[in-house]
Design a binder for these strands. Structure first.
Lengths: 165, 165
DNA sequence: TATTGTTATACTCTATAACTATA
DNA sequence: TATAGTTATAGAGTATAACAATA
């Protein structure tokens, strides 16, 4: 490519679009969402399947609770778990306390898969923020956390990616 | 941070989760995405239908170009436009320069709808960042814009919501 | 009676492959 | 031949409604 003149991005100056808060947030979110969707797809997962596995990393909830975590109807969960189970990523297990209920458990394969996807997602996101200086990253983290923390009803994404310091 | 003591959120302090950058970004993005999805759904729109209308606000592209904007195969665009056209939100019009091609145009109804959804999305997002001080909002905007601007291939969300000052 | 989960049904969204009509 | 668009088909994902089993 290299259109040389016309718009000569000589070097560093990335020609930042002058966005308002709402547009900037919308575009950032879209970028992040697409990043996850793309990596998931490369592993034959949808975003919702990835979220399913993410939730199950540290829980073995009954179907109905899973539905609450993911914001889905129980009939949607049935199908979702069907497909994941068919692929050997999760299993349904009996619930000792209530015989109507079934717990959903991630398998070793499922765990391995979600960890791989999570790691790649994390790497890619790091690449996206690579132009930020350390203090800026720190700042962005705090601001994002504050906005998220101020929200009440909080659907799950829950890939808890950062291994933490 | 200042985690007060174990778990006594005396008052204002919203007990911010101590997230890493990646988790904070993921959760923020998820929050924003869900906000749009929910408002769209209340208007019988999916996120992709909303994006379709958003793109068409200032363009009348041929189907194939629409597919490039939205990152979809031409067959997916056919169906998408079919359903939107059936609802009277867009129309297909002849392309003078190439008789194989059809331009897609938003209707007045479509425009009205996407503007309503965009306004509500904007309001809701403003509510989400309401806990930020003006300088923080300014900062978040700049940081988000910088991350977005550093990205190359940029799929469209394009609701250009902020009427701008 | 109420709740947990499944199934039947219907619709959107997506892609691949085969097709038509232009170019 | 190559490109723009449609259609047929297949599958995921979603919800509503009706159902069975259990509480």
């Amino acid at each position: 490519m290299a259109p040389a003149d016309q718009a000569s991005p000589r070097q560093a100056a990335p020609v930042l679009p002058d966005l308002g808060l709402v547009d900037a947030l919308a575009q950032l979110s879209f970028l992040v969402y697409n990043t996850l969707a793309e990596i998931a797809r490369e592993h034959d997962l949808s975003v919702v399947q990835t979220r399913l596995l993410g939730v199950l990393r540290d829980r073995e909830p009954p179907m109905i609770v899973l539905g609450q975590h993911l914001g889905l109807d129980k009939s949607s969960i049935s199908g979702l778990v069907d497909r994941a189970e068919r692929r050997g990523l999760v299993t349904r297990t009996a619930n000792a306390a209530d015989r109507r209920s079934l717990n959903v458990t991630i398998t070793d394969d499922g765990r391995e898969l979600v960890e791989r996807v999570g790691a790649l997602f994390s790497e890619q996101l790091e690449r996206h923020v690579a132009t930020l200086a350390p203090e800026q990253r720190e700042l962005l983290t705090r601001l994002a956390a504050q906005v998220v923390g101020a929200d009440g009803d909080h659907r799950e994404i829950d890939l808890h990616l950062s291994p933490g310091p």
